[in-house]
Computed example of a mutant assay.
Amino acid sequence: MVVGDLQLKGKIAVVTGGGSGINLAFVRLALKVEAKVLIADLKLLPEAETLIESSNGNAAFMKCDVSKWSDLEAIPSEVSKAFDSVADVWIAGAGVFEPRWSSFLYDTEDDHYKALQINTEHPIKLTRIAMRSCLGANKPCVVLIVASMASITGSYGAPLYCASKHAVAGFAKSMAQADVDEDCKIVCVCPGVVATPLWTSDAAKDVAKQYGYNDEMSITPEEVAEAMMEMVQSGEYPGGSLLEVSKGNLRGQLESMQSSAQAMASNSAGYQTWLENNSAPIREVWNKERGVTATIGVH
Score class of each variant (00 low, 15 high):
V232G: 01
S70D: 12
L116V: 04
S164N: 08
G154I: 10
E73H: 13
S155W: 12
A74L: 06
T153P: 06
A35M: 14
Y211H: 10
V189T: 06
Q233H: 07
V232N: 04
H112Q: 15
I124G: 00
M264C: 12
G252Y: 13
A150L: 11
Q7K: 12
S70M: 06
F61S: 05
E255S: 14
N119E: 10
Q7D: 15
Q272D: 15
D206S: 13
W274S: 12
Y237K: 06
W90C: 01
K173S: 03
C64W: 09
E47T: 01
Q210S: 15
M149F: 06
C64V: 10
A158E: 11
R290N: 03
Q253W: 08
N249F: 11
E121R: 12
K288Q: 14
L275A: 15
A227Q: 05
Q258C: 06
V142N: 09
K114W: 15
M229Y: 06
A115H: 04
L24V: 08
L198T: 10
S164R: 09
V187P: 01
S80H: 12
V37T: 00
T220I: 08
I22D: 02
S54L: 12
V207T: 06
G4M: 07
W274V: 03
G297P: 07
K32P: 01
P123Y: 07
